[in-house]
Design a protein around this nucleic acid. Structure first.
Length: 473
DNA sequence: TGAAATGTTGGGGCG
DNA sequence: ACGCCCCAACATTTC
């Protein structure tokens, strides 16, 4: 009877788990293992580590319930696997592809410790190198990519096995707390209040999305005060739910046709899921884009070194309420509403002219859904230097956006309680009428910062810099 | 998944 | 009745 190692990486689930299914299909003994390895490029940030701690706890429990056991080991995967192969006599390693660039935690290899690594496709709907456009190259524009893969997707997720083979008791495992994933200081209470990491948390959220969020999703997803987005991103990042499972549930909602609004919401969410696929497609074919602009002209762009503004942005103290609310939501919950991410990112890269990598690195450290492919693609999209990017001159006005998408100031007051005495007419841009603001007991510069930049001035500066770049190129 | 400037149109007030 | 102006609403262009 042969033995396989089931190497969990960011596929921390048992449902629709192709690596698990394949290991079992060999009719062999299956030894599940998680390897805590060293840093490397884009070492996981603190919020992600918090999430992973809890996700591993849930996975460990789910395996135990089915008669198996999760081994936790620490070290270089090559070394750890060599030890495990010696201890178990394993002939294969099964895991799901991550397809990140070399040197990153999610880089794949097809052999470790002299044993073949069988790479499965449970993390994505499509193998990330596919599809190819008519000239045989990768896609660089979302819409044709979307239309192409939409017609080809036919997910067939498989349910979790109800029982698993036992793991020999003499195999050592670290305790979860020995991985040291939790922060020393307990700043994570906000995260714990907001999230339920782990497979059952992911499934519960998907159920709620289908039952009560989908119908209003197309318009609701832009209003940050509402619970109207899927919030599946961290669950998907850690593989607590498979994209094929999400897809199937959404397709079922479309098929049911009870509610055409629900079907429209499902289609829109499928589109978002395919943005995730597209990000992986792009990072696989253009692996330098996690650090370098996709559009080479931007190698010459005069980004400003401005540590003071960067720090104000990070702390949520720019004096621009919609931006500060988003940055504080991020700090407290490890998440930021998608619309607000675009606004905050536009302010940093375009209004402040600060390099998108500074923003990408901050998000990387603070987001529970930090994902190299999505983070890189989206930061470059906002900055205007990426694949299918927003043109550089598309600069968000955070005040206009705030008035449009949070007209009643509900989101602003939630994250900026110091502004809650202000009426809706003043809360979106308090610096415009400082005297009226002061009448309400809010003193700018004391209770809430004055804006770190002038939106009109910074807009013109950004446009001028872009124009000069075009002339050079 | 923009914003601001500029252009156009049409209704109403008014001499 | 008519032309004129104003301005809001909408469309188009430019960045």
């Amino acid at each position: 009877m042969s033995t396989s190692l089931l190497w969990f990486r960011r596929d921390l689930r048992l449902d629709d788990q192709p690596a698990l299914d394949a290991a079992l299909a060999r009719g062999s003994r299956v030894v599940p293992v998680y390897v805590e390895s060293g840093a490397g490029r884009w070492a996981e940030g603190a919020a992600s580590r918090w999430w992973r701690h809890h996700s591993l706890a849930a996975l460990s429990e789910a395996l135990a319930e089915r008669g198996s056991r999760l081994l936790l080991r620490r070290g270089d995967p090559q070394t750890v696997m060599a030890t495990l192969v010696r201890e178990t006599g394993a002939v294969e390693i099964h895991t799901n592809r991550l397809a990140e660039p070399p040197g990153c935690a999610g880089a794949d290899s097809d052999q470790l410790a002299g044993v073949p690594v069988r790479l499965h496709g449970g993390n994505l709907l499509n193998p990330p190198e596919l599809p190819r456009n008519r000239s045989g190259g990768p896609y660089r524009v979302f819409t044709p990519y979307y239309q192409r893969v939409l017609g080809e997707l036919n997910p067939a997720p498989r349910p979790a096995p109800t029982a698993l083979p036992a793991v020999p008791g003499d195999l050592d495992s670290l305790r979860l707390d020995q991985l040291g994933l939790l922060p020393r200081q307990d700043w994570a209470r906000g995260l714990a209040a907001r999230w339920t990491p782990g497979e059952s948390g992911a499934q519960a959220r998907l159920e709620r999305v289908v039952d009560s969020i989908l119908a209003a999703y197309p318009e609701g997803r832009d209003r940050p005060a509402e619970d109207a987005t899927s919030c599946l991103s961290p669950h998907l990042h850690f593989g607590e739910i498979s994209p094929a499972r999400v897809m199937l549930e959404l397709q079922a909602a479309v098929m049911a046709q009870r509610d055409t609004r629900q079907a429209a919401g499902a289609r829109e969410l499928v589109r978002q899921l395919i943005w995730r696929e597209f990000a992986h497609h792009v990072l696989l074919h253009f692996p330098h884009t996690c650090e370098q602009p996709f559009d080479p002209r931007f190698g010459q762009f005069p980004w400003r070194e401005d540590p003071v503004t960067l720090a104000a942005w990070q702390r949520g103290e720019t004096g621009i309420p919609m931006v500060d609310a988003g940055m504080r939501e991020l700090w407290h919950t490890g998440f930021m509403h998608n619309r607000v991410r675009m606004i905050a990112a536009s302010l940093l890269t375009k209004s402040a002219g600060i390099h998108w990598l500074h923003g990408a690195r901050w998000f990387w450290d603070t987001l529970v859904d930090a994902d190299l492919a999505s983070n890189s693609l989206n930061w470059q999209w906002v900055a205007g230097c990426g694949v299918d990017a927003a043109p550089f001159f598309r600069i968000f006005n955070p005040v206009t956006q705030s008035r449009r998408f949070d007209p009643a100031g509900v989101y602003l007051r939630r994250w900026l309680p110091e502004l809650s005495p202000l009426p809706n007419a003043l809360i979106h841009a308090p610096w415009e009428k400082p005297a009226l603001v002061q009448d309400r007991g809010v003193v700018l510069g004391r209770d809430y910062p004055r804006p770190v930049l002038d939106l009109a001035v910074s807009r013109n500066r950004a446009l001028a810099a872009w124009k000069r770049l075009l002339q050079k190129a």
